[in-house]
């Protein structure tokens, strides 16, 4: 059975100017022990999606359609108390710059123990013991439980937050850019610890980042989001060898590599993500896509199967060889850049 099943999920932010369609028709499943990486630019809806699974949307965030089935039960229809029981026990989140979310006037230990006790019936003693255990797993000395946040380095604080998230052995861990504020050496160590723990406890993980190289090392599956929709979903192994979607091809061009393969000049994708306000027509990537046609301007491509566990949302999967060839050329993207400038001149 699937641990998590997201079905046709729509999420809106209600604003004075109208509804912002942050996530549209997103579906994916997650098996026990599987880890999936979610990538995309800022504003593509990846963090909103994660927050929704925890039911942590801000007040103006509305789930306007779809289901999120966790162990067969729909999270969307649960009330506050039922959700509270799920959090930390079943689903835990390590959020971005979480290390700044520690309360400065309590010791780290007090905060972890408070979390454990408010979600279980453990006595204080048991909770302390549990906190010491998770600290040991994540590589912190147990005397650190008595430290205040300001006495710890960034790496230690982030570890404490991870310890807190793991304290009740959740089945699902949602990690939202858990290491972006950290140095490479610390990042590398924490990431390897997270995967180690995830393997040991057989929990599933949703890993959100904009650094695709991390996903290549950590996750079996990658989901590329753009403008609130899934553009490509594939196993990491296949994706990093041969991406399909024009957006994925663009992303691949934009990444510097430390390895000595001279990819030539990096090319980024010209333009900016679409405004998700108002009526949205056609493919979300149409403004920045070098291969768009009239059909793309009018018709939204559905996510369709093109191989085993490999789906893309593009009208032209059969033209992939041509896309791959063309997307390597600078001129292809320069054309997009010129097109965007011309279009913005027309607006003025």
């Amino acid at each position: 059975m699937n641990l998590l099943e997201v079905k046709n999920l729509d999420i809106d932010y209600v604003t004075k100017e109208g509804n912002l369609k942050v996530v549209r028709d997103v579906s994916f499943t997650l098996k026990q022990g599987e880890s999936v990486g979610l990538v995309g630019e800022s504003g593509c809806g990846k963090t909103t999606l994660a927050k929704t699974i925890m039911r942590l949307l801000p007040d103006n965030g509305v789930i306007s359609g779809g289901e999120i089935n966790y162990k067969g039960e729909n999270i969307v229809t649960k009330n506050k108390e039922e959700i509270r029981k799920l959090r930390l026990n079943e689903i835990a989140m390590i959020s971005q710059s979480a290390m700044n979310s520690l309360n400065p006037v309590y010791t780290v230990g007090e905060q972890i123990i408070e979390g454990i006790r408010s979600h279980t019936n453990m006595s204080k003693k048991e909770a302390i013991k549990r906190a010491e255990e998770v600290f040991a797993i994540i590589g912190l000395e147990k005397k650190r439980l008595k430290s205040y946040p300001h006495q710890m380095s960034g790496g230690m604080k982030q570890r404490a937050i991870i310890a807190m998230a793991l304290s009740l052995n959740p089945s699902l861990i949602i990690a939202d850019e858990p290491t972006t504020a950290l140095d490479v050496v610390v990042q590398d160590k924490i990431l390897s610890q997270i995967t180690e723990i995830q393997k040991q406890t057989k929990s599933s993980m949703i890993f959100i980042t904009h650094d695709i190289s991390i996903i290549s090392e950590l996750c079996e599956t990658i989901i590329v989001m753009y403008g609130g929709k899934i553009m490509e979903k594939s196993s990491s192994k296949v994706f990093f060898k041969a991406p399909y979607h024009p957006y994925s091809l663009g992303l691949q061009n934009a990444f510097p590599s430390i390895l000595d393969i001279d990819k030539g000049d990096l090319i980024s994708i010209p333009g900016a993500p679409p405004n998700l306000m108002g009526e949205l027509k056609g493919c979300r990537f149409k403004e920045r896509c070098p291969f768009r046609t009239d059909k793309c301007m009018e018709e939204l491509p559905e996510l369709k199967e093109i191989g085993e566990d490999h789906q893309i949302a593009c009208h032209y999967p059969e033209r992939v060889d041509e896309f791959r060839e063309e997307s390597k050329k600078k001129e292809t993207w320069q054309m997009v850049s010129d097109r965007i400038i011309n279009e913005s001149k027309g607006d003025a």
């Binding site: 790496g155 050496v185 590398d188 190289s213 991390i214 090392e217 590599s257 430390i258 390895l259």
Partner: peptide, 18 residues
């Protein structure tokens, strides 16, 4: 410590105190 965007690449990690 730099992650590599190639699932087949096996990175040799040097373990140190961070």
């Amino acid at each position: 410590s730099v992650p590599i965007a190639d699932p087949d690449y096996i990175r040799e990690r040097i373990e140190i105190d961070d």
